[in-house]
């Protein structure tokens, strides 16, 4: 899986020289703070999509999604979403269709496709038109987009990262 910003690190040595044993200087405060990270927060629907992207060959999985509902309702979905421009009304329709499927999914695969359509449409509207087409709180959406970007492959990671950047710049 290709992840956002995965260019080789040439400017920095790969391992931090901490002298002696690795992480020997860790304090109890650091350790407890990092241990706490191991506890999952309240589960959101987007977490199901994040898990799916992390667990599968996500590039191939997303490509296969684009050939089926609800993505097949958007003309040339791959280019429209990742390169653009897609019409805002078409992105709104894709988002709404995705939301409807998530509310009443016939299968788990359809549920995940609905989630992917929902977030891809919102991200594309932000990146291509600087438009916020959801009532989700911005900070919450920014966090979801960052998390999706952290596990999504190549161009999808770029879409979610750029959408999150747009939110970080907006009031």
């Amino acid at each position: 899986m290709t992840q956002a910003g995965s260019e080789p690190d040439r400017a920095h040595a790969p391992r931090v020289d901490r002298g002696g044993q690795p992480y020997e200087d860790i304090t109890e405060v650091q350790a407890t703070s990092l241990l706490r990270m191991g506890l999952p927060g309240p589960r959101k629907a987007a977490d199901d999509l994040v898990d799916q992207l992390e667990a599968t060959d996500s590039g191939r999985w997303l490509d296969s999604l684009l050939r089926r509902s609800p993505f097949d309702e958007l003309s040339n979905a791959h280019i429209a979403l990742l390169a653009g421009p897609a019409d805002v009304s078409a992105l709104n329709a894709l988002k709404d269709r995705g939301k409807d499927i998530v509310k009443n999914p016939p299968t788990r695969e359809a549920y995940l496709a609905g989630l992917a359509a929902y977030y891809a449409a919102i991200a594309a509207a932000l990146v291509q038109h600087n438009q916020f087409i959801t009532r989700q709180p911005r900070a919450e959406l920014e966090s979801v987009l960052q998390e999706l970007a952290s596990v999504a492959p190549g161009a999808w990671a770029e879409l979610f990262t750029k959408a999150a950047m747009k939110l970080s710049k907006q009031p």
């Binding site: 910003g5 960052q146 950047m165 970080s168």
Partner: peptide, 27 residues
Amino acid sequence: FGVHPTRAAVMARTARRKFIHALRELF
């Protein structure tokens, strides 16, 4: 690192997930 702060946050999240998986694997 010469990246946008949001990109830095995304990259940190990628590594963070590796850390969380490692931590839970140790348990």
